[in-house]
């Protein structure tokens, strides 16, 4: 080996070592995602193109779009998709409306209890969806705490119908999603220099104008991230609509589950899952584009 080769050797070796390290660091997560997300999705998609023989409750290998056609031609299913989108949009809007002021206060507070506030915001997430929903069933039922209290006080005669209605589902998903919205917004608002707001004030902008012209556009990345997160979570909500909506209230995620477990109709279940995924992705992208175009103006 020549002297030159010895001299340049270590440099090359170090680079190769770094490459190996990077691979080693990336590999586990990549393999995990590939095995646990992409592969099942690929299989699911393949299944969604299969045939289903209802009489025998059996899947037959085929390549057909019959399952997708079935979904979009049956008003029963399209209505469920409509409800899901509607609920998700309403939940997202409500979370943004409720979450922004809270996130703003939390971002701007100088209080030493700020950390406590943040923990309180996250606290609801410590309780699982199923447990929380069960708790609400106790409170909001016709003979539950809420109605008996109001009746006991003589404020209402008949119990308020909250359980097993859209209202219950809305309240339920909002409560679950709100922390995600608040935390996302809070971190973004915190990164906005407070002096920028004051600058707007000193230039003659009243608070609402300041909000519209300065705070809102600067918080836009957080608003986008928060609404997307909130929307996706709401579109895919399972436990809350299932437990609080009752047997007559239908959303997409419980429907998918139902097709797989109750009906054993894997091809149709797969198709619904893909429709849910595509609609969620499509609406998210569309909203993103619209927002960004507005922000770019």
């Amino acid at each position: 080996m020549s002297a030159t080769a010895v001299a340049t050797g270590p440099v090359v070796e170090k680079r190769r070592g770094e490459g190996l390290t990077a691979t080693a660091l990336l590999a586990p997560a990549t393999i995990f995602v590939a095995l646990c997300l992409l592969a099942p999705l690929a299989f699911l998609f393949r299944y969604s193109l299969n045939d289903f023989v209802a009489t025998k409750k059996m899947m037959v290998e085929a390549v057909t779009i019959a399952n997708y056609v079935k979904f979009f031609t049956d008003p029963y299913y399209t209505a469920i998709l409509g409800t899901t989108v509607r609920i998700a949009v309403m939940v997202t809007a409500a979370c943004l409306l409720l979450g922004f002021p809270l996130a703003y206060v939390m971002a701007r507070t100088q209080s030493r209890f700020k950390n406590v506030l943040i923990i309180l915001t996250v606290l609801p997430l410590f309780v699982g969806n199923a447990v929380r929903s069960a708790g609400w069933m106790v409170i909001f039922g016709n003979k539950g705490f809420f109605n008996s209290s109001l009746q006991g006080l003589g404020l209402i005669e008949k119990p308020l119908e909250i359980m097993y209605t859209e209202k219950a589902v809305l309240i339920g998903i909002i409560a679950v999603n709100l922390p995600f919205m608040v935390l996302t917004l809070q971190s973004v608002i915190e990164s906005i220099d407070r002096a920028v707001e004051e600058a707007a004030f000193s230039l003659g902008a009243p608070p609402l104008t300041m909000f519209r012209r300065v705070l809102w556009p600067l918080a836009m990345p957080g608003i986008l991230a928060g609404t997307i997160l909130c929307f996706i979570l709401a579109m895919n909500a399972y436990a809350t609509p299932f437990l609080l909506g009752g047997p007559l209230f239908k959303m997409m995620a419980p429907l998918v589950y139902n097709q797989f477990t109750q009906q054993a109709n894997w091809p149709f279940g797969g198709a619904i899952a893909f429709i849910l995924m595509t609609v969620t992705l499509g609406l998210t992208l569309a909203a993103n584009l619209i927002f960004q175009r507005k922000a770019a103006r």
Partner: peptide
Amino acid sequence: WKRNAGMVFQSYALF
């Protein structure tokens, strides 16, 4: 916003 005072901030606070 109702005073006509121009302010320059330490951080400049440009939008």
